[in-house]
Simulated assay, not measured.
Amino acid sequence: MAKIKVDLHPIYNNSKAIDNALLQAFEDAIEKRITEVEIIPGKGSGQLKKKVQRFLQMPHIKPLYHRIENDSKNFGRLFVYFKYK
């Protein structure tokens, strides 16, 4: 099973680049029918993870994915799952 990995460490201070990277990952996942996107905001202060969570709750993004799962062993990482018919 293929998955897409998005590491936000290199662009942590560029809000527009973060949105673009997440949107591109979602578009790629849907186009290639990939069921899992791994997003790595890192541990840090938690602000980047909050930014990712706000992105995921946007009205035009939320219908694109099936569910979100936090990594139980690494709170600096989360998984977004897609379901296709």
Results as ranks from 00 to 15, higher is better:
Asn70Gln: 08
Lys50Asn: 11
Gly44Lys: 15
Leu56Ile: 02
Tyr65Met: 06
Gly46Cys: 06
His66Ala: 03
Arg54Leu: 05
Ile68Leu: 13
Arg77Thr: 15
Ile61Ser: 10
Val52Phe: 08
Leu64Phe: 01
Lys51Gly: 00
Pro59Glu: 11
Asn74Phe: 04
Gly44Asn: 15
Ser72Ala: 08
Tyr81Asp: 00
Pro63Glu: 07
Gln47Glu: 11
Val52Asn: 08
Phe79Ala: 12
Phe79Thr: 02
Lys51Trp: 12
Gly46Ala: 07
Gln47Arg: 09
Lys51Phe: 13
Lys51Asp: 00
Gly76Val: 12
Phe79Trp: 15
Lys62Thr: 06
Leu64Arg: 13
Asp71Asn: 15
Val80Pro: 15
Ile61Gln: 03
Lys73Phe: 05
Phe55Thr: 02
Ser72Met: 07
Phe82Asn: 08
Lys62Gln: 06
Ile68Gln: 15
Arg67Asp: 12
Gly76Arg: 14
Ile68Ser: 14
Ser72Phe: 01
Gly44Asp: 00
His60Cys: 01
Tyr81Val: 01
Gly46Val: 09
Ser45Pro: 04
Met58Leu: 06
Pro59Ile: 04
Gln47Ala: 08
Glu69Thr: 10
Ser45Thr: 13
Gly44Ala: 15
Lys51Ser: 14
Pro63Tyr: 03
Tyr65Ala: 00
Phe82Gln: 09
Tyr81Thr: 02
Tyr81Gln: 11
Lys50Glu: 12
Lys49Asn: 02
Pro63Phe: 01
Arg77Trp: 11
